[in-house]
Design a protein around this nucleic acid. Structure first.
Lengths: 226, 226
DNA sequence: GTAAATATATGACATATATCATAAAGCAGA
DNA sequence: TCTGCTTTATGATATATGTCATATATTTAC
C-alpha cells in the first residue's frame, strides 16, 4: 500500500514536507479503512493509539459534556479532520467521531508521526498550521452559535451544508433534526418549528431530509441579524 | 536580559526542550513588557510580527464576529495564553487580547520561534502540546455555554473565576456585567437579573464587583442542571 | 469638585424558547 | 404484513430571555 492516492487532500499538505526516504517508511505503515454511515470510529475516552485523518467523506465530532449531555462539536470534511487535536495534549480522545457519509480514513502509527515531528521541521510546521486552521474553524463556529437566536442558529446550519459541503441549492441534510438540536443547543421541537417557519416563509422547501434553498439572501440576512 | 524569571510558567514548559546554545540566542532576543489594566496589546486584524506569551497576569481574548458583534472568547492566565493560535495558520490575528489585570508579556521574534520548531523536535512537540491543551480548554468552555440556560451560564462564569483564577470564596470580578454578557451571549439586563436572583436565593453575596460565594454546592448544582 | 459618561439595578412588557401532549410518517425487524 | 421504534410535525401552554424605560451608583474627564 502506498500514498499515491488521487483523492487525498491531506497528501498535498503533509507530504510536500516529506522527502522520498521518509515517505517510504511513512506510506509503508499506512492503513486505510472504509467507514460505513453511522459508524463511530473514534470513541470519547479511548486511548489514542494511532494518528487518523479523513481522506474522503463527512464526519461529525461529538461528545458527552461535563454534565452528561450529548453534544455535537462540529461537522467535518477531509480538510477539517485530522486527529491531532489531542495527540500531544491528552492520551485519550475527548470526543467521538462518527461517519455521516461513507468515509475513508487513513491510519498511521502515532510513533511515526511523533518521530516525524521531531526530525522534520517542515512537517511539524505544516502539522501545526493544519491543526491551527482546523481548530480555529471549529472554535469560530462554536462562538458564532453562542450569540445567535434560534433562527440564526438553524439558518447557520442550513447555510453551512450549502456553502461548505454540497455547494448546490438542493441537498439532503446528512443529519436529523435531533442532531441539529444537539449541535445548536436548541430543543428538537424548536428546530422543527424553525424549519417549518422557514418553509412557510418561502425561504426553503423541505421534503423530509431534503432541503432546497429558495431565498439564500433571506437566509443570510437571518443568519446575520439574528 | 535573560530568561531566569522566577515567575515564568512557560519557562518550564518550553525551555526544558532547549539546550544552552539555543537558549542563549533565544533569551537574548526576548523583550518583556508590562501591560496596564485595560490595555489591548493584540488587536484583531493586526499582522502577526512576534510571538507573545503571558508571563503574569490575566487577559481576555475577544473579537468582532462575522456579523459585527463584540464577543469575548475566553479569559486566560499564564497557562492559557501563548500567541501561537494563529502563527502558522494565518498572518493576522483573528482576535484581540486585553489585560484584565496588570500583566507581563514576553515577546520573541517570530523567526526565532519558527526556526526552533524546524530545528528542535522536542520544542515543536512541547509547543503543539501546550497549544493543543489551551485550545481544547477554550473550545470546551465555549461548547459548555451553548447548551446552558442563563442560570447555568452565569453560574459557570462565577465558578470559573473561583475555581480557576482566585481559589477563594470571595473575590473581585475582573470583568463588568456587560463583559459577562459579551461572553455568555446573554443581554446585560439578564446577567444583572440572574446575579440578583443568585443573591436573593442566598447563593452569593454581591457588593458591586465583589462576589462572595455562600453556597458553592448550590452554584455547582445550577451549573450542572441548567 | 463637578459634569458627563458608564455601570448596576429593577419593573413592565413582549418575544423567544422549552415542555408536554398528540399524531402522522417513515423505517427496521419478526 | 404487522409491530414497534424513531423521526417529523404541530398545538397548547409555561417558562426563559430580550427590550425598553427609568433610577441610582460609580467611574472618568476636565
Amino acid at each position: 500500500m502506498n500514498c499515491s492516492c488521487e483523492k487525498c487532500h491531506i497528501q498535498e499538505i503533509f507530504f510536500k514536507s516529506i522527502n522520498s526516504n521518509e515517505l517510504d517508511s511513512f506510506c509503508g505503515a499506512r492503513t486505510e479503512k472504509i467507514i460505513p454511515v453511522g459508524t463511530t470510529f473514534i470513541k470519547q475516552g479511548d486511548k489514542i493509539r494511532s494518528f487518523k485523518y479523513l481522506k474522503e467523506g463527512l464526519i461529525k465530532l461529538h461528545r458527552i459534556d461535563g454534565v452528561g449531555n450529548r453534544q455535537i462539536i462540529s461537522f467535518g470534511t477531509p480538510m477539517d479532520f485530522v486527529s491531532i487535536h489531542n495527540i500531544f495534549a491528552e492520551d485519550t480522545y475527548s470526543y467521538s467521531v462518527t461517519a455521516l457519509e461513507t468515509s475513508t480514513v487513513c491510519i498511521f502509527s502515532i510513533d511515526i508521526i511523533k518521530r516525524l515531528i521531531k526530525t522534520n521541521g517542515k512537517f511539524a510546521e505544516n502539522l501545526i498550521s493544519t491543526k491551527s486552521r482546523a481548530s480555529n474553524r471549529i472554535l469560530s463556529n462554536s462562538l458564532d452559535l453562542i450569540s445567535k437566536s434560534m433562527y440564526g442558529k438553524v439558518a447557520s446550519v442550513i447555510l453551512f451544508f450549502h456553502e461548505k459541503i454540497y455547494f448546490t441549492m438542493g441537498f439532503d441534510l446528512p443529519i436529523s433534526r435531533k442532531e441539529i438540536a444537539e449541535y445548536t443547543g436548541l430543543s428538537i421541537e424548536t428546530v422543527i418549528r424553525v424549519i417549518s417557519e422557514f418553509r412557510r416563509d418561502g425561504l426553503i422547501r423541505v421534503y423530509g431530509k431534503r432541503i432546497e434553498i429558495i431565498d439564500k439572501d433571506g437566509l443570510i440576512s437571518i443568519y446575520k441579524h439574528s
